[in-house]
């Protein structure tokens, strides 16, 4: 059992008013200190490799999308945000997505798709802002999700470092 012992108050403390004045002096001093608020749209949030923003698809240096439409991320997604229709391709990998939609209204930015992907094709970017005027506009298709590999490189390196127990070095 926890016994809470009330502190014995001195006479000055029980008079209350001196303590009120002390409190007022504390708040008055804070008055002149610099605000720590970030003025958001003008001063954006600091971003780093650990920032887990919206998922984006990797476009390799040769211009082709890295995804092979295996459907692993679709299965892993806890919010059922991903929809993939695969199709054949003339490239050596034989399959690529004809349709790759992420419903950004459902996406919870958990990063399971990133972990599930066997082809390093989907990564969590540092893009955080998500606002629009219609639901349709927030249903992102393949064109909206594509990003060159160079823009995602920091995150890719970080994920490799983080998971080097089971991933090969690049």
């Amino acid at each position: 059992m926890v016994v809470v012992q009330r502190k014995e108050l001195t006479l000055l403390e029980r008079l209350y008013l001196p303590e009120v004045v002390r409190g007022l002096s504390i708040t008055f001093r804070k008055f002149f200190e610099k605000p720590i608020t970030r003025q958001y749209p003008e001063q954006p949030l600091p971003k780093d490799a650990v920032t887990r923003g919206q998922p984006r698809l990797v476009v390799k240096d040769d211009g082709n999308i890295a995804c092979v439409a295996c459907g692993m991320c679709e299965v892993a997604c806890p919010a059922y945000a991903i929809t993939i229709d695969g199709g054949e391709t003339d490239r050596g990998i034989e399959r690529e997505p004809k349709r790759f939609d992420i419903d950004m209204l459902r996406c919870i930015l958990c990063g399971f798709c990133e972990e599930a992907c066997p082809k390093d094709a989907i990564f969590m970017s540092d893009e955080l802002e998500l606002a629009d005027f219609s639901r349709a506009a927030l249903l992102y298709d393949i064109e909206k999700l594509k990003r060159p590999k160079s823009t995602l490189q920091k995150r890719i390196d970080y994920v490799y470092k983080l998971n080097n127990r089971w991933r090969r070095a690049p």
Partner: peptide, 10 residues
Amino acid sequence: KVSAWMQYRY
């Protein structure tokens, strides 16, 4: 405003 200044806000 005053409440903000007392709490390190703008």
